[in-house]
Design a protein around this nucleic acid. Structure first.
Length: 572
DNA sequence: TTAGGGTTAG
C-alpha cells in the first residue's frame, strides 16, 4: 500500500473537515460518498476509515466503482469484502456491475477459464442474494465478465437466463462481443440478425466479424445501414470499416472510407498502410507512410510493423533495414520482437538466409517461435535444409507441441527427398498426438458464408461443385497444367496426392464461386492457412479462362488473381 | 434520493 500522497490527500482532508463541522455526515452518512470515491485510489486506508466511521451502501458502491476503474482493480474486490463485514452496508444491485468489471480486469489477457475465481465467487454471492437475474445491468456485466474469462457457455447461459424484457441493446452487444472475442465470427453475424435494434457498438462487432470472415457483402450491408441513419462515420467505426474492406481485399472501398474519414488518427493510417502492404500494393503503402508523416501524425509500434511488412512484401531489403535502424531515433519507436520478425522475414524472402540468422542471434530479446518461424519459411522456400532443420529444432525447443514446426520439418525433408526423415517426423507426431490444423476456406455468396474443409461434401450443392472441379481439371490439363504435389507429402499416401490436392478447401470454394457467379464477377475466398503452390497456379489459370477476378486472403497476405496473373507476382 | 452495464486494429 503506497503512503497517502500529499497532493491527493490535502484537499480531501479539508473536505472531510468541512463535512464534519457542518454535521452533514451525522445527518446522512451518504454524504461521505464523493470523498470516499476520490480517496479510494490515492489512500485506501483513509477511505476505509471514513467508510467505517460513516457506513452506507451508497458510499461503498461509489468507492468500489472508483477502484474498479482505477489502476489497481483488485482493491475493489478487497473493499467489497470489507463491505460485507459491516452491518450498515449491505451490497445491493448497484454494487455488482462495477465489482464484476473489476473482476474482469483482474483476468490475465486471453486467460482460460480457471483464472475466473474471484468473479465466479461474486456470481455465487449474487445468486445467494437473489440478485443474479433480476437486473439488466448485472446481467450485462456478468455476461462480459464470463466473456473476458473466455467462458462462452457461461456467458451464453447468463443471456438465456435473462428475462426477454431485459434483453436490451447493451446486453445483446455484450453477447455479440463475447462471441467475437472467442473467434465465433459466423455466430456474430447470425446473432446480429436476431437483434431487435443495432447501434454503433453492434456494428463494430459485426464489421469486425466480417473482417475475420472476409464477408464483404455483409460488411457492405452493415456500412450502408449505418450510413442511412447517420450523417458521418465516427473514427472507431470508420477504422473498423476500413479494416474490413482491406481484409476483404476491396482496396477501392477502403480508399473511399479512408478519404471520407476526416479526423484520421494513428490507427486509421496504420490500418490503411498495413492493408495496402498485404494487398499487393507495398509501394503505395510506403508512399502513404510518407504522407502520414507530413500530416504530423506520429507513427507507433503498429505503424512501423506495417511499414516493415510493406518492405518485406515489396522485397525492399535495404529500405527495411534502414527503417529498423532509424526507428528509435527518427520515429521514437523502440523495435520490438515483432519488428525484428518482419526484418527476418524480409531478409529470408530475399534469400539472405545467413544475414537473417545473424539478426536472430543479435536481437536484444530471447528469440521466439515467430522469429525462428520466419527463418524456417525462408529456408523452405530457398531450400536450405540444414538451416531449416536447425530453425525447426529451435522452435520445438521453445514449443515441443508446435505442429507447424513438425509440418515444416517434414516438408523440408520431403522437398529434399529425404523420405526416411519424413517418416520419422510423421510417426513422432502420431505418438505425441500433434495435429496440423485442417485447412479451411470460406467463400461468401449473396451474403451467405460457406466454409469448406479439404474433401468436404457437406454443401447441399456438393455434386455440382465436384462436377465443376472436374471441368476445371480438364481445362487445366488442356492448358498444360500439372498438379504440383510436393506440398502434400505430409498427410497422405503417394497415390492419393493428386486427388487430395484437387480437393483442397480453396478449390472447393472456388468451384462454388464459379457456379454461383457470372463472367466478370469477383470471387472472394478466405483461407486459414497459407495458399499452396498448386492452388496458386490453378487460381491464376482459372482467373483467365473463366474471366473472374479471384481474391484469396491467406494467412499472411492477399492474392488478387486477374487475367492469369497474381498481385503477389508469385512472391509470397 | 443519490449510483451501475456494452465497444476500440494485428
Amino acid at each position: 500500500m503506497p503512503p497517502p500522497t500529499t497532493a491527493g490527500t490535502l484537499p480531501n482532508r479539508a473536505l472531510h473537515a468541512r463535512l464534519l463541522r457542518s454535521g452533514a455526515l451525522d445527518a446522512d452518512p451518504s454524504a461521505a460518498a464523493p470523498l470516499a470515491a476520490s480517496a479510494a485510489n490515492s489512500s485506501l486506508p483513509y477511505a476505509l476509515s471514513l467508510l467505517r466511521a460513516h457506513p452506507s451502501t451508497f458510499s461503498y458502491n461509489t468507492a468500489i466503482r472508483s477502484l474498479a476503474h482505477g489502476p489497481r482493480p483488485h482493491l475493489a474486490v478487497a473493499l467489497y469484502r470489507s463491505m460485507l463485514l459491516g452491518p450498515l452496508s449491505n451490497p445491493n444491485n448497484y454494487t455488482y456491475p462495477s465489482l464484476l468489471a473489476a473482476c474482469a480486469r483482474l483476468l490475465p489477457a486471453s486467460s482460460p477459464t480457471p483464472a475466473a475465481a474471484p468473479g465466479t465467487a461474486v456470481h455465487a454471492s449474487l445468486f445467494r442474494r437473489g440478485l443474479d437475474s433480476r437486473d439488466r445491468f448485472i446481467g450485462a456485466s456478468l455476461l462480459s465478465f464470463y466473456a473476458a474469462a473466455g467462458d462462452l457457455p457461461a456467458a451464453r447461459q447468463v443471456f438465456d437466463a435473462s428475462p426477454p424484457g431485459q434483453r436490451d441493446l447493451p446486453l445483446w452487444n455484450s453477447l455479440l462481443h463475447a462471441h467475437l472475442s472467442q473467434g465465433f465470427y459466423a455466430h456474430v453475424l447470425r446473432l446480429s440478425r436476431q437483434m431487435p435494434a443495432a447501434d454503433e457498438v453492434t456494428l463494430l462487432a459485426l464489421v469486425s466479424a466480417c473482417s475475420h470472415l472476409g464477408a464483404l457483402d455483409t460488411g457492405r450491408w452493415a456500412h450502408a445501414s449505418y450510413a442511412r441513419t447517420r450523417r458521418s462515420t465516427t473514427r472507431n467505426l470508420g477504422t473498423a470499416l476500413l479494416n474490413m474492406y482491406m481484409r476483404c481485399g476491396d482496396v477501392e472501398s477502403a480508399w473511399s472510407v479512408f478519404r471520407e474519414t476526416l479526423d484520421k488518427d494513428v490507427r486509421t493510417w496504420s490500418v490503411m498502410i498495413a492493408g495496402l502492404a498485404t494487398n499487393g500494393l507495398p509501394r503505395d503503402a510506403l508512399a502513404l507512410f510518407a504522407e502520414m508523416k507530413n500530416t504530423g501524425v506520429d507513427p507507433d509500434s503498429i505503424t512501423m510493423t506495417a511499414v516493415l511488412s510493406a518492405c518485406a512484401h515489396a522485397g525492399m531489403v535495404d529500405e527495411g533495414k534502414k527503417f529498423l535502424d532509424c526507428m528509435p531515433v527518427e520515429y521514437r519507436v523502440q523495435p520490438t520482437i515483432e519488428h525484428y520478425g518482419c526484418v527476418v522475414d524480409l531478409l529470408g524472402r530475399a534469400g539472405q538466409l545467413d544475414e537473417a540468422l545473424a539478426l536472430i542471434k543479435t536481437v536484444p530479446f530471447k528469440a521466439d517461435v515467430v522469429l525462428w518461424g520466419a527463418l524456417l519459411v525462408a529456408c523452405r522456400v530457398h531450400k536450405n535444409v540444414d538451416m531449416g532443420e536447425m530453425a525447426a529444432m529451435e522452435i520445438l525447443k521453445l514449443d515441443p507441441q508446435h505442429a507447424g514446426a513438425c509440418v515444416f520439418l517434414s516438408n523440408v525433408y520431403a522437398d529434399a527427398g529425404k523420405w526416411d526423415l519424413v517418416q520419422g517426423v510423421r510417426s513422432s507426431m502420431k505418438e505425441q498426438k500433434i495435429y496440423k490444423p485442417p485447412g479451411s476456406s470460406i467463400v461468401e455468396l449473396n451474403g451467405v458464408v460457406y466454409e469448406f474443409l479439404s474433401g468436404d461434401r457437406s454443401h447441399p450443392q456438393s455434386d455440382r461443385i465436384y462436377a465443376m472441379l472436374d471441368e476445371i481439371c480438364k481445362t487445366l490439363s488442356l492448358k498444360g497444367h500439372k498438379p504440383s504435389t510436393k506440398e502434400v507429402t505430409f498427410d497422405v499416401d503417394e497415390e492419393d496426392k493428386e486427388v487430395c490436392i484437387s480437393q483442397h478447401s480453396e478449390k472447393l470454394a472456388l468451384a462454388l464461386g464459379l457456379i454461383s457467379t457470372t463472367r466478370g464477377d469477383v470471387i472472394r475466398i478466405v483461407k486459414n492457412l497459407r495458399i499452396c503452390e498448386d492452388c496458386h497456379s490453378v487460381m491464376k489459370i482459372v482467373s483467365e479462362v473463366y474471366d473472374r477476378v479471384i481474391v484469396v486472403r491467406d494467412r499472411n497476405r492477399f492474392h488478387h488473381f486477374k487475367n492469369g496473373s497474381c498481385s503477389c507476382l508469385d512472391y509470397w
